[in-house]
Nucleic acid binder design. Structure first.
Lengths: 106, 106
DNA sequence: TGCCTCCTTGGTAATTCTACCAAATCGCCA
DNA sequence: TGGCGATTTGGTAGAATTACCAAGGAGGCA
């Protein structure tokens, strides 16, 4: 694989990796409906604040979400709605797999 | 986060994680154009055969690709074309980030 | 100013991922 | 049958990821 090709796929990988965690996926799903402050997300996720903050930093780092400080709180919102289409695709893979497994059993 | 919600996002994460590696991304891109045997992919990627085989096993494990043995070779092909749309989305994130950085510099 | 809440950053132990080498398996053909 | 090339599987060292606790700002308010 050429160096430039390698670099291009590494760039893409960085963004995909940022998505590759249940908590981060959940937060993106939530942020697609409403902007939320860290404390709200922390409450919903049910993990340590520092953990949630670090997950958000990862999403922010690759440009998937945007933050905005308002007073003492920090609000996050989704910056790239098109990732939602992808979730539909992922969902279709899951369904296809399930159907296939069912077919094999019957 | 409820247990069921957690489970749903973990299921999605498994598929996204399978995508989260430059070599696997490269192979999916290649397989979207042509089916390929392991030896061809190994040649293109430029890694050990066992490494490539393991990457393919990961993609196969989540149902993203399909394998078919023909004689002594094993051919792989993409099972879920919709992931390609996602790459466009990822690309748009990269472009948006680059534009933003440019804006900040100017 | 002093304090309280919200959030981020450091540090660390445990888990997971990855690449390569070795060894096993499989199909083909002399 | 024996050998050969293609592929997978086992094993392992090194790198990366993740969760939590502690500590460090930052903003608002008495």
């Amino acid at each position: 694989m050429e160096a430039e090709t390698q670099a291009r796929f590494e760039l893409r990988t960085r963004i995909i990796k940022a998505l590759a965690h249940p908590t981060r996926l959940f937060m993106i799903d939530e942020l697609s409906r409403n902007e939320r402050c860290v404390c709200e997300l922390t409450e919903m996720v049910g993990a340590d604040t520092s953990t949630v903050s670090k997950h958000l930093a990862i999403l922010r780092g690759v440009g998937l979400v945007q933050d905005e400080k308002r007073g003492v709180q920090v609000y996050y919102k989704l910056r790239v709605p098109c990732v939602l289409n992808f979730f539909d695709c992922v969902e279709s893979v899951i369904k296809a797999n399930a159907s296939e497994q069912l077919r094999l059993v019957e």
